[in-house]
Design a protein around this nucleic acid. Structure first.
Lengths: 345, 345
DNA sequence: TTGTAAGCGTTATCAG
DNA sequence: CTGATAACGCTTACAA
């Protein structure tokens, strides 16, 4: 019986104890918590006070076993390229935990087994053990293995990033196109006529959207857009070399928009290497508004993602499915905000 | 009864179904999973195969209710200063999830309610609902409110960072002193005689250790150490100004060690602003080895934290307590590795 | 409105 | 080594 003892030692108050202390039955306490309108106000007050006094909370395992609801959302942490990690992972997670908490949900982190790239076994395990009510996926591609898998398994999910046309449109994303159009507009308003775009590794849908959004608006405004040639992500220096080439010659761009703050750092270096000054000779704009921006000199203008709104949207989308409601048939596209700093004014 | 139906829809295989399919009783299946040595090998094989085939995993809620073990560790996400976020949050979390997973544990993220600074109510809630077996705390100070609180509540915990002498020594930390001694040694070996240290906001114990470790070893090696005056964290530019002052005059340091990679960025800027070149006129060393290092020009020498080992140590420490074993009476101090790049050679 | 009884899926106890 | 029975703490019909 040392087992029951150790459990008791954790100070776990049970519903039974609350009931006894309040002079009512177990079920009345349960009702007071889950269906207060079923309890006479005066009884409710007494029970609530007792709950408060004893610091009682229902045991989540017992509750889950009975109701089937885990009150927990799983977040599949992407396996990052250490060279180019998701710069928002930490901030997004914090926003997600807050948004989930506002709906009474916890966030459970999980990852593929180390050394494994395929996340599907990890997903299956989590679902088989019934530890979550739904899943949040980040960095979702149009054609994503994870999405296909969770759709097949039937678990509620919500994606940060867009799913393909064949999949349920359970996603939230920022409007990359509009954000970069705003960047182009900002640069035009500052008087720039020749602008550059640095997007890094091709193929990522959000990067493609940023490029297109920038080019289209720049065209509309009569700006000339230049892009460097191949620009690998990660390997140091070659990105800089490509941007330097862009900055040579008489008709060099007077402003460069980058697809991420890290890429903007490369642009800073290229500008310096060409003997020019960021913010005076060449304006630079980044993307993500990481803490980095304020540590660069001059401070970097960047596009800020509405992380709390994104997280709230994902949680709402997820809980709608958990409750069996029909989620909206299309994704949620949120605006991102341009934060202007000295690098572009 | 639509409730039972929806739960069933999730495809949850029960132990009962496995037992039927394998032609044994429930308990035999349970034994096969939890105490294989109690089951005759041939039966075990049959049961295991059936478990595999049906993708069965015990329902974690039921299991927790019965055994008291949640198989889940709580991670209290620090409320970051957006100006100076913990640069390792993402990487540390990934390591923690991996380390926990290796021991069959999940990681549950939680935070104080938004707008609240005091993490204690959030801790109490999590414990009252019995959702975790133990807690991981990060960025722990010698005299930490959170530590005092969890000690009082009696829940197993492990701290990244050091706890005060009055608290249980359930912590893992890097050897900041030795790491910075290694930095001083490295700079001395490169022929530097006058070196600087930039530590940012005073008062943080790890920063104090870094400073002391650096100064002590520099002294021992006969180096002259200079430090800037007040150097606020966050507010842009003033840190740079302080470092610039340090770099003026004939006996300027030829190398500067920074207490973080972000501070090293300020040093880069100060060096440039003084018309000098990083890596040639002034060597620079950072701390944390964030992805930033490889995006700076020249690439930044930095101190890499052994995140997987730290995470593994924390999990081991935590599980020892959960199992009722006596944890070691002192903390675990792990070495950090100096990664030399072009900024200091 | 309250109390009674049942059962969620699992593991531990104890008899075979 | 295997099979019946009880219990973990809770919620939800159902009857009072």
């Amino acid at each position: 019986m040392s087992e029951g003892l150790s459990r008791r030692r954790r100070g776990a108050t049970t519903i039974e104890e609350v009931a006894r202390a309040a002079g009512v039955s177990r079920q009345t306490v349960s009702n007071a918590i889950n269906a207060p309108q079923k309890v006479r106000p005066e009884t409710l007050a007494r029970v609530t006070a007792t709950v408060e006094r004893l610091g009682y909370q229902p045991d989540q395992s017992a509750r889950s076993l009975r109701t089937g609801a885990r009150r927990t959302l799983g977040y599949l942490a992407p396996v990052d390229d250490p060279f180019d990690p998701n710069p928002l992972m930490a901030g997004f997670l914090e926003a997600l935990v807050d948004a989930a908490g506002a709906e009474g949900q916890r966030v459970l982190l999980f990852r593929p087994a180390p050394g494994t790239a395929d996340p599907r076994p990890a997903i299956d395990e989590l679902l088989a053990a019934r530890q979550v009510d739904g899943l949040v996926l980040a960095d979702v591609l149009r054609d994503d293995l994870r999405v296909a898998h969770v759709v097949r398994s039937g678990v509620p999910f919500a994606a940060f990033g867009r799913t393909g046309a064949g999949s349920p449109q359970h996603w939230v994303d920022i409007d990359n196109t509009a954000a970069m159009a705003a960047v182009a507009g900002h640069l035009a308003a500052q008087g720039h006529r020749r602008v550059g775009f640095v997007g890094g590794a091709a193929g990522l849908p959000w990067m493609a959207d940023r490029r297109e959004g920038f080019r289209a608006e720049a065209d509309r405004l009569g700006l000339t857009v230049a892009e460097p040639g191949e620009l690998g992500t990660g390997a140091q220096g070659d990105g800089v070399a490509a941007v330097r080439a862009l900055l040579r010659g008489a008709d060099r761009p007077t402003a460069v928009a980058a697809g991420s703050d890290l890429l903007a750092m490369d642009v800073y270096e290229a500008v310096r290497a060409e003997g020019l000054t960021v913010g005076r000779d060449v304006a630079v704009v980044g993307f993500h508004d990481t803490p980095l921006c304020r540590h660069l000199h001059p401070a970097l203008t960047s596009v800020r993602l509405p992380l709390p709104a994104i997280a709230a949207g994902l949680v709402r989308l997820l809980l709608a499915q958990v409750r069996g409601e029909q989620p909206p048939g299309k994704g949620l596209e949120l605006p991102a905000e341009l934060v202007v700093r000295d690098s572009s004014r």
